[in-house]
């Protein structure tokens, strides 16, 4: 399966979705001008992956910041991951970033997925 690899910029996150190497990560800042357009390739990739996923998937969110329009799309990404067996979400937040910790908790309440919370 093709690897989705997007370099991070000052307003978009770094994204690596690599089935072969088992790397699934969204990190950095997310405040794109058009969040729906930006996340569409990610949702499409997950859609294909869901047809033939690895036995277990560790999906990492290591976001420094995201805007509210991105939060809606992150929920869409999580919802797409919900249907994949063996999925675990690893939600990273900076140790003094309570807002990012709380954001992760809220997402975990909105979807049926195991979340592991980790600081960096």
């Amino acid at each position: 399966m093709e690897i989705l690899n997007l370099e991070g910029t000052e307003d978009t996150p770094k994204i690596i979705l690599d089935k072969g190497n088992g790397i699934f990560e969204i990190s950095g800042r997310s405040l794109p001008e058009d969040s729906a357009e930006f996340y569409q390739p990610v949702l499409d990739w997950i859609d294909s992956y869901a047809a033939d996923p690895n036995a277990s998937t560790d999906f990492v969110f290591k976001l420094e910041y995201f805007n509210t329009a991105s939060s809606k799309l992150i929920l869409d990404v999580l919802s797409a991951l919900e249907d994949i067996d063996g999925m675990t979400i690893h939600w990273y937040f900076h140790e003094d970033d309570e807002d990012m910790e709380e954001a992760g908790e809220e997402f975990s309440e909105l979807v049926e997925l195991p979340f592991e919370f980790k600081t960096y």
């Binding site: 001008e33 729906a36 329009a69 929920l75 809220e106």
Partner: peptide
Amino acid sequence: KQLYKNIIKNTEISDKGGAGLGFV
């Protein structure tokens, strides 16, 4: 917090690209 969760669950991104969550 409740309002935020209600909006994010039910909202669609508008044609202007907003989620209606900014003020909250």
